[in-house]
Amino acid sequence: MGTLGELNVSDDPAMDFKEPVFALTNVDFWYGTKQALGDITIKFPINRVTALIGPSGCGKSTLLRCLDRMNELIPGVRLEGEVAYHGQDIYASDIDPVEVRRRVGMVFQKPNPFPKTIYENVAFGARVNGYSGDMDELVERSLKQAALFDEVRDDLQKSGLALSGGQQQRLCIARTLAVGPDVILMDEPCSALDPIATLKIEDLIRVLVKDLTIIIVTHNMQQAARVSDFTAFMLAGEDGAGRLVEYGPTQRVFTNPKEKRTEDYITGRFG
């Protein structure tokens, strides 16, 4: 397609997304004077799971946080280039970052429920956003979407902190779903979970992606291979800035990567 610079997707028609959720063009990002991302150009497709993989410090979490303007909460950061969400530059001066974060939800590495009841954890964001519909129905629907309702239906007034780690993470997903996002960003969502809880989250991701778009950062190569449709491999350059090395259909990236650097990383021979 030729729009992704030196990225190794040129002969991959599957990567020519006509109406991507996000289209990043020549994005550079700095923490103060330290450049964390260099010349990132990438499109994320609708209703697909895209995995960002790469070694620590390659900028994948930074890239993820550029997509909901979460990085702006850190003093001294600077972004250049364009981050278009459904064609609109989310860094334009007239864009409200809070609205961006409502449309683009985030699930973090460590489950972080509010110290409130399960019900309130889900209802809180919707209430803050001015939701005026049937709150009981919204809470139930969100918990069902997050595959948690059956486990907590009789305990909605108990503290969210009383749940197991895996349940807490699904509660956080329910909380995100309650405000009606069309993208969920996941930053190593299973790294603090046991294998069973991890598989539940992965199953959930495959269900959720029918209705929304998911972009997931993971260090777990097998997880990226299991849950994602597309995989982007990032690596820090000599200047320390993270760059895209290869982007393609997950099946292809994990069986037949085009770049030696990708092959070395995913086969554990990196460095």
Partner: peptide, 9 residues
């Protein structure tokens, strides 16, 4: 070993 890429092939 969960082989991938060239190892898997």
């Amino acid at each position: 070993q969960q082989p991938l890429a060239g190892d898997l092939r």
